[in-house]
Design a protein around this nucleic acid. Structure first.
Length: 494
DNA sequence: TTTTATT
């Protein structure tokens, strides 16, 4: 019941926006406010569905079509019980797919055979998908990823290769927008056992002509893994750190707590209609990310505390008083005020959202969001600039002179991002203690970073903590190497 | 060499 009402509310909102932007179709769709065939006002006409009805997943739907536009297409095969276009929970953005349930099971089967992969909706470059929703068949452990295929191989070729091991329900070659094979595919069997048999028989069994290594056959990524990969890519592209890659529990839990908070903050602000679509998008991503239970990294649930005290749940070689989270902050987009009263201004104050709110009437939400992505990316260099400015050349607390700390306090850091300077290096290590100097080595001739440097703390414990937390830390495609500077090579001028 | 999406 709750779901029905939510769906109805959705439909109404859609209609409102449609009439605003002129995309609405026929104005004469009677008393139906949405794409459902329910008639809320008249219980006697609420359709019944077969108890064995099939919920269908509909894919490859142009984002400008809503329930009302899709209804005619599907009604042809029977009476519709429910039709819901999927929308992003925060942005309301059309996800390009829908769920469809017919009153009768037979209608679903007819629609599937008549439409699935059979026609392409306007503006799409792949054919419409009509198949039972994932929820209809549990056990998603029967889908394989097949890598290292020859780019010339077709679906049929792959099928031939895999059909000996079981019934193939689906076989798809991954292709780029131009239709060229990406050299990999998905193969879905009817059962897990079949899939496993195929792995056993085919993985590494042969090398396709033109492929760089032997055939890869493994279970496809889970949603969780996919989200992780996406986050990785996004972080890499934007030059951000990936807090999830921090190898140790203590700091990881801390970062995760920050993310959770930040996601909540952003979500609440976004729902207040204050942020643009991109911010809402980022909030959704962060929330997903924070929700992921990384191989037990985040141990105890934490209550965020005010700066200065060690968050509960962090034990052993914990980060000793993580000062304000600013060290992590400038790079992840977390606001300086990670806890306490999350002020909306904080989000804007850190340079992450340098664009003004946009009028909802200007363009279609997709275009707006897309513009947001570009601005978001473009904003990053600016964010870097601000980070540097946060530590002016002669910072009050930081001696100008490079100096080395006592034995055991000096770290050698390798695999720094090319764009890192002294300030960024210091920023990165501030959370672990009092940094008395930081130096990135640059090439004399080109002035380019050599991607390594030194950081000195005023005590060995801070240095050890920093090693624990940052050695192996992933930035983009590289992992930092953080170790004690070799004591012997005396004092050298930087 | 992991997709266009699965409330």
């Amino acid at each position: 019941m709750y779901i029905k009402m939510a769906t109805l509310a959705n439909g109404q909102a859609d209609n409102a926006s449609l009439s605003t932007n002129g995309l609405g179709s026929s104005p004469g769709s009677g008393g139906h406010m949405n794409g459902l065939s329910h008639s809320p006002g008249n219980p006697s006409t609420i359709p019944m569905k077969d108890h064995d009805a099939i919920k269908l997943f509909i894919g490859q739907i142009p984002r400008n079509l809503d329930e009302k536009d899709l209804k005619p297409l599907f009604e042809e095969f029977g009476k519709i019980y429910e039709l819901t276009v999927l929308k992003d929970r925060f942005t309301g953005m059309h996800k390009g797919c829908a769920f469809l349930t017919y009153c009768e099971r037979e209608s679903a089967l007819k629609a599937q055979s008549a439409l699935h992969e059979q026609k392409t909706l306007p503006g799409m470059n792949r054919p419409i998908q009509v198949k039972p929703a994932d929820s209809e068949s549990r056990g998603e452990d029967r889908k394989l990823f097949v890598g290292m295929l020859n780019k010339q191989q077709s679906e049929d070729d792959v099928r031939r290769l895999f059909e000996a091991f079981g019934n193939i329900e689906e076989c798809t070659i991954l292709r780029g927008p131009d239709g060229n094979s990406k050299g990999c595919a998905f193969v879905k069997y009817s059962s897990h056992a079949e899939a496993q048999a195929a792995i056993n028989a085919l993985h590494g069994s042969q090398t396709m002509p033109g492929a760089s290594s032997s055939l890869v056959v493994k279970f496809a990524d889970t949603d969780k893994e996919r989200t992780m990969r996406r986050m990785q890519q996004m972080a890499g592209q934007m030059g951000m750190f990936n807090p999830m890659a921090i190898p140790f529990g203590a700091y990881g839990a801390y970062a995760q707590a920050l993310m959770q908070q930040q996601a909540a903050l952003m979500a609440s602000v976004a729902q207040g209609g204050y942020l643009n679509p991109m911010a809402a998008f980022a909030a959704a991503q962060m929330q997903q990310m924070a929700a992921l239970n990384m191989n037990g990294l985040a141990a105890a649930p934490m209550t965020p505390t005010s700066g200065g005290s060690t968050p509960p749940g962090i034990t052993a070689p914990a980060v000793p008083s993580i000062p304000s989270p600013i060290g992590v902050n400038g790079f992840t987009g977390l606001p300086p005020q990670a806890n306490g009263q999350p002020a909306a201004e904080a989000v804007f104050a850190n340079g992450i959202h340098p664009y003004p709110a946009q009028s909802p009437t200007t363009a279609d939400p997709l275009q707006q969001a897309y513009a947001g992505v570009q601005q978001y990316a473009a904003a990053y260099p600016a964010a870097y600039g601000q980070i540097s400015q946060a530590f002016p050349q002669p910072p009050p607390m930081i001696p100008q002179q490079q100096r080395e700390g006592p034995e055991g306090c000096n770290l050698f850091i390798y695999h720094l991002p090319q764009e890192f300077g002294d300030a960024e290096l210091m920023q990165m290590f501030l959370p672990f203690g009092n940094v008395i100097s930081s130096k990135v080595f640059v090439d004399r001739a080109t002035n380019q970073s050599k991607c390594f440097g030194f950081v000195s703390f005023d005590n060995p414990a801070s240095a050890q903590t920093a090693i624990q937390a940052m050695n192996g830390f992933q930035i983009g495609m590289k992992r930092l190497k953080v170790q004690l500077k070799r004591p012997k090579d005396a004092n050298r001028p930087y």
